[in-house]
């Protein structure tokens, strides 16, 4: 070993100085006092650790119990009622017959002696498709009215029996 900082030579003068002036030896009483102090402190540390361990265990148990209670007490959502089936619209396959509203209609009435004249514009301009005679067949004609075959629930306008 050639490191310059390595161990000093065996005849290092500091060794002699150190060896000739060791620290004073404590008395037996002083040693006992230190040993008793160590034992007392270790007992205190062990007691504190035991207390802390129980405290942690208690805290954990309390927390677990709290979670269980909270889960039991937590308000549950009301059961959803079974879905009610809505009857299908029987007219869904037909175009809805347009109907004029109040704002679509301008009615002018002229009243005079014995005369009552009502004039208005067509509220819904355009062609209104209606069933033709070819599209209608009568099953039975009675004096009080007529019966249309139940082929459809769509509304039917009838102009007159003579047609």
């Amino acid at each position: 070993m050639t490191h310059p900082h390595l161990d000093p030579a065996p005849d290092d003068p500091l060794r002699d100085v150190w060896a000739s002036a060791p620290p004073p030896r404590p008395s037996g009483t002083a040693w006992r006092k230190v040993q008793d102090g160590i034992a007392a402190e270790l007992r205190s540390v062990r007691r504190a650790r035991t207390t802390r361990r129980w405290a942690v265990a208690g805290l954990a148990s309390g927390l677990a119990a709290g979670i269980v209670i909270a889960m039991l007490m937590w308000p549950r959502p009301a059961p959803t009622p079974p879905a009610v089936e809505v009857a299908s619209d029987p007219l869904a396959e037909y175009d809805v017959l347009p109907i004029a509203t109040e704002s679509d209609v301008m009615v002018s009435a002229v009243r005079s002696d014995g005369i009552e004249l009502v004039a208005c514009d067509h509220p819904l301009p355009g062609v209104m498709p209606l069933a033709t005679a070819d599209e209608i067949s009568f099953a039975r004609v009675e004096a009080g009215g007529m019966s249309v075959p139940a082929r459809t629930d769509a509304p039917v306008f009838v102009e007159g029996l003579d047609k």
Binding site: P26, A30, V34, G37, I38, E41, V45
Partner: peptide, 20 residues
């Protein structure tokens, strides 16, 4: 402890703290 503190009483205190 004695060499670092220079007196017996402090050194014994340090020994006690050190062991604990």
């Amino acid at each position: 402890a004695y060499r670092l503190l220079g007196n017996e009483a402090d050194a014994l205190d340090a020994v006690q703290d050190g062991f604990v």
